[in-house]
């Protein structure tokens, strides 16, 4: 029930991000969601794509430093308090969130929230005990 996310190191230089998107376009890889953490010196691009293994492979070959990791994707209904419920669940289990980002899903009005935690197995176990819907790969990247 995990989703694969890939992270790409971006040095602080104009055109780097475009180089990533160009590479993905050339290989017909679809970006479902992305998030960039940056400082003045460099950035880390995190993406959910429809073909994570292929994306990692082609980006590495293009000369990027890439890693992949398991993250949790949650369907969060578009109404007050739903994200809070998910975070409370994790927090009460002493599971700290490294980062999260959200995007709008394809098939419903729910938002999809990507969460990266230190201990994904434990987080999953906790979340499954609640009514929160955890999404699988197919639901997130449609394959």
């Amino acid at each position: 029930m995990f989703v694969k996310q890939i992270s790409v190191f971006l040095e602080n230089k104009s055109g780097r991000l475009a180089e990533v998107t160009r590479t993905l376009k050339e290989h017909q890889i679809d970006i479902r969601a992305l998030y960039i953490a940056d400082t003045t010196e460099y950035g880390i691009l995190r993406m959910i794509v429809d073909q994570p293994e292929k994306a990692q492979d082609v980006l590495t070959k293009t000369g990027f430093t890439v890693s992949s990791t398991r993250v949790i994707a949650l369907a969060i209904a578009d109404r007050p308090g739903t994200l809070d419920e998910a975070l409370e669940t994790l927090s009460s289990g002493s599971i700290s969130v490294d980062y999260l980002y959200a995007f709008v899903g394809r098939s419903s009005d729910d938002a999809i929230v990507i969460i990266r935690v230190e201990n994904p197995e434990l987080a999953l176990e906790r979340l499954n005990q609640t009514g929160i819907r955890v999404l699988d790969c197919r639901e997130v990247y449609g394959t």
């Binding site: 992270s7 790409v8 190191f9 953490a37 010196e41 460099y42 880390i44 430093t65 890439v66 890693s67 990791t69 490294d98 980062y99 990266r116």
Partner: peptide
Amino acid sequence: ELTDGERLERYAELEHLT
């Protein structure tokens, strides 16, 4: 040159490297 992607998972790791 950053060659190992391992540290990308957590931002602090990269800061720690520099």
